[in-house]
């Protein structure tokens, strides 16, 4: 009986809140929002502390008294980083790898997604299942032989070594197939009657219509290429072929008394992806939860 009363009270309180105050101003709502704000602070503060550190002189970064904001903001770290290391080259390498890898990923995955979505052919389902099964392979199993293949191809310290092995992923194909499968077949048949080749159909009819899918694949591919570390670590040894991540990591070892440069390197390495993320949040979320929603 007691519980019944309290449930009613709760419901009534809820009704009142809905009619009088915005819900987030109800006591529970304020608490929840506060808890989430604390969580956001815990998430953001370490990153901001790193970002502000990039503009502090070395003795202020690790020193007493503790400062959060830079008290004497300076750009010296960034200019040192650019003048003493091949930072510009690293940045360029990252751009080449991320953009090149993304273009290949978009083209090849949408082509294959089109193949799987809109054609009937022998072994289609078997091949599709095999393709999805490759997602279960831990990449660590492949590393040692891949290293030797790169050696055999004489691809060490080349862009192709950084781009080609990951040029098209099963996950991107899976996504592109999902975006392509809904296109009306009549469009394709109309194209065929107009004399388009199958390749022409993909280029002129399919590609323009699957732009939302392309956006998702492009953003995920750009991010994972930009952030990759293990593979570049293995296939590049010359500092002028380092991608940003590798360059920044190389500052951690022998130069770690120069924290200012390390922090400004980390800030510049992380900014492009974070900016892309805040612009294209919806696409990120769509792509990254595709695996979960499928269940």
């Amino acid at each position: 009986m007691d519980t019944q009363v309290s449930v009613d009270q709760v419901t009534k309180a809820g009704e009142r809140a809905r009619t009088q105050l915005p819900r987030w101003l109800a006591p529970g709502g304020i608490l929840l929002n506060l808890a989430l704000l604390v969580l956001v602070a815990i998430t953001a503060i370490p990153y901001l502390y790193m970002a502000f550190g990039a503009f502090k002189p070395n003795d202020e970064i690790f020193g007493v008294p503790f400062t959060f904001w830079p008290t004497q903001p300076t750009l010296k770290n960034i200019s040192d980083l650019v003048s003493q290391f091949e930072f510009g080259r690293w940045f360029l390498n990252s751009v080449i790898v991320a953009v090149g890898g993304t273009i290949l990923q978009v083209l090849l995955s949408s082509l294959a997604g089109f193949g799987f979505a809109k054609y009937e052919f022998r072994l289609r389902n078997v091949l599709f299942t095999i393709m999805l099964a490759t997602l279960l392979i831990p990449f660590q199993v492949l590393l040692v032989p891949q290293f030797q293949i790169i050696k055999a191809f004489a691809w060490f310290n080349t862009y192709q070594a950084l781009i080609v092995p990951g040029a098209v992923s099963a996950f991107s194909i899976f996504l592109m197939r999902q975006y392509t499968i809904g296109l009306p077949n009549e469009l394709l048949d109309a194209g065929r009657i107009d004399g388009a080749s199958e390749f022409g159909l993909w280029w002129r009819v399919v590609l323009p219509l699957v732009r939302p899918g392309i956006a998702v694949v492009a953003i995920l591919s750009f991010t994972s290429n930009w952030n990759s570390f293990f593979w570049p670590l293995i296939v590049t040894t010359r500092t002028d072929m380092f991608v940003l991540n590798l360059g920044v990591a190389s500052l951690v070892g022998p130069y770690d008394y120069q924290y200012g440069m390390l922090l400004s390197g980390a800030l510049l390495a992380s900014l492009p992806v974070i900016i892309v993320f805040f612009i294209f949040q919806r696409q990120f979320i769509e792509g990254l939860t595709a695996g979960a929603v499928r269940q």
Binding site: T43, P46, M50, L263
Partner: peptide, 23 residues
């Protein structure tokens, strides 16, 4: 909330390592 809790996911492991030297 979604966006601000999510951004570490798109940050590279190297940058995260640098951040946590400070933490």
């Amino acid at each position: 909330y979604r966006a601000s809790l999510f951004f570490p996911v798109v940050t590279s492991s190297v940058v995260i390592a640098v951040i946590f030297t400070l933490v």
